[in-house]
Design a protein around this nucleic acid. Structure first.
Length: 873
RNA sequence: GGGCGAGUAGCUCAGCGGGAGAGCAUCCGGCUUACAUCCGGAAGGCCAGAGGUUCGAUCCCUCUCUCGCCCACCA
C-alpha cells in the first residue's frame, strides 16, 4: 500500500540508486536506431547547481528522455569545464585565507593545489547533475583538461596557427588589474557609472594653452600627443605645434585626426596610445610613441615619474590635486558613462597595450554566418539569429592568451631571439628550432594559458574523441540540439559554430534553443554578489526535484525571462502529490485485475470513450508541443488533463462502477484506469522522472521507465460523440452544484433533481453519476413539469431543471442569479446576431466559423427562453 | 547611439485573427473512505494608450508611453 502523501525525499534517492545501478542510459553507437545527441554545456568545477543550470539541464534531460523513449539512440555526453579564471580565482581566495598568494607558492604548487581542489570538489557538480536526474551516459564523462581534450586543444591551436588564423602581436587589449591578465572583448561588461569629466590645460610650447577633456586623468602620464579635428576652425591652427604635458613636461606634438569630435568637450583630444584604442590608431598614423604607464596590477609604472607605484585611482586623485595646485585644472563636471568591468571579478578594466595571441575571426565567422542563414543551424526562438549575425558580422579578433596558471598552456616555445615555434609538443618545437638555428638552443615555453572558452569551442567534437576518427563522431556529430541561456551566445555558441565548421566541416548542432533567463521574485538577476541565488538542492529538499523540473518546464516560454516563483513551485509539488494519489487510487482499485487483460473488444462506456478520446488528444498535444520546444504548453496540457479531467471526472465516475456495477463493467473500468495510468506515466516521465519511475515500479513493471516507449498517437481513440455527451453531463452537474451553492442548500443535503426540458438521455444514462456528483437524491425527467413553490431552478445549456428544496431557498439569490445569467446570455446572443446579420461576415468568414456561430446562437436562444420562463414565474 | 523583449484578473503568468484563461490570493460551502499538498461553488479584466489593416483584433501594421535586457572605442 502506497503512503497517502508523496515524499520525494524518500523516493528520489531510491530511484537514483536504482538508476545508478542499472545504468540505463549508456548508449550504443552501433545500434541501428536513429541517433539523437546532446553535449552538455559543461558546468564549471567551481560551480554549485543553481536555477539557471537547473533550467538548462532540465530541458536537455527532458529532450533526451523523450527521444530515448521515442526510439532514438539518444546520447547525452556529460562533462565539466576547468573554467580558467573562475577556478583560479576560487583557489586564490582559498589561498588568501591561509595568508598565501599564488606567487608565494609558485606555479607548480599552485597548479597542484588546483588539481587537488578539482579532485575534491570537481565531482560535486557532477553528483548534483545526477541528483537533478540528468540521464547522461556517465561512462562518457569528460573534463576539458583531460589528456585527450588537451591534445585536441593543442592540435587546434597548431592547425589554426599553420593556417595563418592565429598570430601573436602587440595590441590594445582589455586588462584586468586584479586578475592580472588580458581579457577578450566579451569578458568585459560595460556598466553605466557616475564619473567626472576633467578639463585640463595643456600649455603650448610657445605660450598659451589648450584644454583637453578626459575621464581618466591618470592616463595623461602616457600621453604622447594632442589631436584636434582638422576641420575644426577653432583649433586647425594648432596642428604642427607643440604642447607640454603638465606635471611631467613631456613635449606633445599636436596632430590632426578626423576621429576627434569637435562637439565633445573642448574639441581637443589628448593622445594616449598605450591606453586607448582610438588614441592608438591616431598615434600609429602620426608615429607618436606608445607608452604603457601601468604595471600588471594596475599601479603606475616608472613612466609615471613621481606617481610611480601609486594605484591608478590614487594616482588619479594625486594628479588632480597637483593640477589644481598648478592652476591647470579648468573644471570638473559630473559625467555618466559606460565603464568596462571584468566579468569575473567586477574590477574596472583598463585598455592596455600588450603582446598577446589572437585568433583571426573574420574567416571563421563567415561560414558560421552562412550556416545559420542557410538553416543548417536553427535558432529557437529565431530572433536570436539576428543577435548572432550582428555579433559575427562585426567580430574582432579574439585575444586567446591569458596571464593565468590554470588552463591549457599555449603550445609556443621561444628561441633565444624570441622567435616562436608553435608545435604539438616540445620535441616538435625543438625540431623546428633546430631547422632554424642549425643547432640545439634552449627553448622556453610560453608562460600563458588559453582562454577557457577556447577549449569549450571544441567541446562538441573533442568529447567525442576528435582528432581520432571515432565511431561516436561518425554517429553523433553533429549533435541534435543545444540548450542554453543567451548569456553565452557569443562566448560559446558562436565559437562552437565557428570551430565545428572549421575542424569538422560541419555544424556542431542543428538547433540552438535559447532559454529565458531566470530572475528572482522581484525581477532581479540572480547573482552571487546580490546574494539572491537559489540553490537547486535546497528546492529539492523542500519540494522535490520533479516539482522543480516541472516548474522549469512550465516556465520555459518563449519570453526573455522567468521570474522564479515560490507559488508555482508549491503548485508543482501539489501536482506531484496529485499524481501520486491518482496512482495510489488506480493501483489499489485494480489489484484484483488479472494481468494481461486488454481493452480489445470490450464494451466501453461513454465515459471510457470520453477519457480515451481526451488522452488521445493529450498525446498529440504533448508530442506536438515538445517537438516545437513549447515545454510550457505540453506541461499545461498534462496538468490540466490529468488533474481536471482524469482525476476530477473520470476517477469520480469510476468509483461508481468500481463499487457497484457488474463484474464485466468493473473490469472494463479497471482496464481503462490502468491504461490511463500507463499512458500518463509515460507521457510525464521526461518531465518528472523520479515520481513516474517510482509509480512504474509499483505497476509491476520491470526495467526502467526511461527505456519504455513513449506513447504513440492513438487516433482510433478519438470520439467526438463521447466528448460531446460527457461535456453536456459535466455542464449539467456543474450547473446543479452552482445552483445549490448559490441557493444555500447545504453541501451534504441531498435533494431531488427534476429535468423539465432536455436531458432525457443524460438522465437515462447517467442517473447514478448525477446523483453522486451533484448530490441528488433522485434524478427524474418530467417534461413540462411545473416547479412547486420553493423550487430552485437552473439552466445548463439547453437543459432546464429544478430542485424542490422548499423553504431552504434564498429566493432573492435565485432570481438575481437567473437575471444575471439571462443578461449574460442575451449580451452574448446580441453580439452573435449582429455578427451573423452582417452579410460580409457570412461571405468572407470561413464556413465552419459561420456555422459554429449559428449553432451557438441557437443554443443561446434556447437558453434565454428557458431563463425567461423561469423569471416570469 | 543601435537592437531586442515585456506591459492581459490583487499577484505570477499562459493565450496571439473569430468564446478572455490558469495557478495563487480573496469570498462562500465541504474531513464525499486517492489526495485538506484535497473537493465543490463564487467574485474579479475598456487584454498599457492612440491610429490603421480586416467582415471581425488582446492577437497583424504604425506611432506613443512605462519597465527590463543586450550591443556600441565619443575621450
Amino acid at each position: 500500500m502506497l503512503p497517502p502523501r508523496y515524499d520525494p525525499s524518500e523516493v528520489e534517492p531510491r530511484v537514483l540508486a536504482r538508476w545508478e545501478k542499472a545504468d540505463p542510459w549508456r548508449c550504443d553507437p552501433h545500434s541501428r536506431k536513429p541517433p539523437y545527441s546532446i553535449v552538455i554545456p559543461p558546468p564549471n568545477i567551481t560551480g554549485r547547481l543553481h536555477l539557471g543550470h537547473n533550467l538548462v539541464y532540465t530541458l536537455h534531460d527532458l529532450l533526451i528522455r523523450y527521444k530515448r523513449m521515442d526510439g532514438y539512440e539518444a546520447c547525452w555526453f556529460p562533462g565539466t569545464d576547468h573554467a580558467g579564471i573562475a577556478t583560479q580565482n576560487v583557489v586564490e581566495r582559498a589561498l588568501a585565507r591561509e595568508g598565501l598568494t599564488r606567487q608565494a607558492v609558485g606555479r607548480e604548487e599552485f597548479e597542484r593545489r588546483v588539481w587537488a581542489w578539482k579532485e575534491k570538489y570537481g565531482n560535486e557538480i557532477v553528483d548534483q547533475l545526477k541528483v537533478l536526474g540528468c540521464s547522461c551516459d556517465w561512462s562518457r564523462q569528460r573534463f576539458t583538461l583531460d589528456p585527450g581534450l588537451s591534445r585536441a586543444v593543442t592540435l587546434a591551436f597548431v592547425r589554426l596557427h599553420r593556417e595563418g588564423l592565429i598570430y601573436r602581436g602587440e595590441y590594445m587589449v582589455h586588462w584586468c588589474p586584479r586578475c592580472g591578465t588580458a581579457l577578450s572583448d566579451v569578458e568585459v561588461e560595460h556598466e553605466e557609472a557616475d564619473g567626472h569629466l576633467y578639463f585640463i590645460r595643456y600649455p603650448l610650447e610657445e605660450g598659451g594653452h589648450v584644454t583637453v577633456a578626459t575621464t581618466r586623468p591618470e592616463t595623461m602620464l602616457g600621453d604622447t600627443g594632442v589631436a584636434v579635428n582638422p576641420h575644426d576652425e577653432r583649433h586647425r591652427g594648432l596642428i604642427g605645434r607643440m604642447a607640454l604635458l603638465p606635471l611631467l613636461g613631456r613635449r606633445l606634438p599636436i596632430v590632426g585626426a578626423r576621429e576627434v569630435d569637435p562637439a565633445f568637450g573642448t574639441g581637443v583630444l589628448k593622445i594616449t596610445p598605450g591606453h586607448d584604442p582610438v588614441d592608438r590608431e591616431i598615434g600609429k598614423r602620426h608615429t607618436l610613441p606608445t607608452m604603457d604607464v601601468l604595471n600588471p596590477d594596475g599601479t603606475i609604472n616608472d613612466h609615471g615619474g613621481p606617481f610611480a607605484g601609486l594605484d591608478r585611482f590614487a594616482a588619479r586623485e594625486e594628479i588632480v590635486k597637483r593640477l589644481k595646485a598648478e592652476g591647470l585644472l579648468e573644471k570638473v563636471v559630473p559625467y555618466r558613462h559606460a565603464v568596462g568591468h571584468c566579468q569575473r571579478c567586477r574590477t574596472r578594466v583598463e585598455p592596455k597595450i600588450s603582446t598577446q595571441w589572437f585568433v583571426r575571426m573574420t574567416p571563421l565567422a563567415e561560414p558560421a554566418i552562412q550556416a545559420v542563414r542557410s538553416g543548417r543551424i536553427q535558432f529557437v526562438p529565431d530572433r536570436w539569429a539576428k543577435v548572432y549575425f550582428d555579433w559575427l558580422e562585426g567580430i574582432r579578433d579574439w585575444c586567446v592568451s591569458r596571464q593565468l596558471w590554470w588552463g591549457h598552456r599555449i603550445p609556443a616555445w621561444y628561441g633565444p631571439d624570441g622567435e616562436a615555434f608553435i608545435a604539438l609538443d616540445e620535441a616538435e618545437a625543438r625540431t623546428l628550432a633546430g631547422e632554424r638555428y642549425g643547432r640545439e638552443v634552449p627553448l622556453r615555453q610560453d608562460e600563458d594559458v588559453l582562454d577557457t572558452w577556447f577549449s569549450s569551442a571544441l567541446w562538441p567534437f573533442s568529447v567525442m574523441g576528435w582528432p581520432e576518427k571515432t565511431v561516436e563522431l561518425r554517429v553523433f556529430y553533429p549533435t541534435s540540439v543545444l540548450v542554453t541561456a543567451f548569456d553565452i551566445l557569443f562566448f560559446w555558441v558562436a565559437r562552437m559554430a565557428m570551430m565545428g565548421l572549421h575542424f569538422m566541416e560541419e555544424v556542431p548542432f542543428r538547433e540552438v534553443l535559447i532559454t529565458p533567463f531566470i530572475v528572482d521574485e522581484r525581477g532581479q538577476k540572480m547573482s552571487r554578489s546580490r546574494g539572491n541565488m537559489i540553490d537547486a538542492l535546497e528546492v529539492k529538499e523542500s519540494h522535490g526535484m520533479d516539482a522543480l523540473r516541472f516548474t522549469m518546464a512550465q516556465s520555459s516560454t518563449k519570453g526573455r525571462e522567468i521570474r522564479f516563483s515560490q507559488r508555482q513551485l508549491d503548485e508543482a509539488r501539489n501536482f506531484e502529490n496529485k499524481l501520486w494519489n491518482m496512482a495510489r487510487f488506480i493501483l489499489t482499485n485494480t489489484e484484483d485485475l488479472p494481468v494481461g487483460g486488454s481493452l480489445e473488444g470490450r464494451l466501453l462506456s461513454v465515459e471510457d470513450r470520453w477519457l480515451l478520446s481526451r488522452l488521445s488528444g493529450l498525446v498529440d498535444k504533448v508530442r506536438t508541443e515538445l517537438d516545437r520546444y513549447n515545454f510550457h504548453l505540453a506541461t499545461d496540457a498534462l496538468y490540466h488533463v490529468v488533474w481536471h479531467e482524469l482525476c476530477d471526472w473520470y476517477l469520480e465516475l469510476a468509483k461508481l462502477r468500481l463499487q457497484g456495477g457488474d463484474r464485466e463493467e468493473r473490469i472494463t473500468c479497471q482496464l481503462v484506469l490502468r491504461e490511463a495510468l500507463d499512458l500518463v506515466v509515460r507521457l510525464l516521465h521526461p518531465i518528472m522522472p523520479f515520481l513516474t519511475e517510482e509509480i512504474w515500479g509499483h505497476m509491476g513493471e520491470k526495467g526502467s521507465l526511461s527505456r519504455a516507449a513513449y506513447p504513440e498517437p492513438c487516433p482510433e481513440w478519438r470520439d467526438l460523440e463521447a466528448e460531446g455527451q460527457l461535456g453536456r453531463l459535466m455542464d449539467l452537474i456543474r450547473e446543479v452544484r452552482a445552483v445549490r451553492a448559490e441557493v444555500g442548500v447545504l453541501a451534504g443535503a441531498e435533494v431531488d433533481l427534476v429535468l423539465v426540458a432536455g436531458g432525457e438521455e443524460l438522465a437515462r444514462a447517467f442517473a447514478p453519476a448525477i446523483q453522486r456528483l451533484a448530490r441528488a437524491a433522485s434524478v427524474r425527467h418530467e417534461p413540462g413539469a411545473r416547479p412547486p413553490h420553493g423550487a430552485a431552478r437552473g439552466v445548463a445549456g439547453e437543459i432546464a431543471f429544478f430542485l424542490p428544496v422548499g423553504e431552504l431557498v434564498d429566493w432573492e439569490a435565485v432570481r438575481a442569479r437567473t437575471r444575471r445569467d439571462l443578461e449574460k446570455a442575451r449580451a452574448e446572443l446580441g453580439k452573435l446576431e449582429t455578427r451573423l446579420a452582417n452579410p460580409q461576415f457570412r461571405e468572407k468568414a470561413a464556413p465552419d466559423v459561420v456555422s459554429k456561430a449559428e449553432e451557438e446562437a441557437q443554443a443561446l436562444r434556447a437558453r434565454c427562453a428557458r431563463l425567461e420562463r423561469y423569471l416570469a414565474d
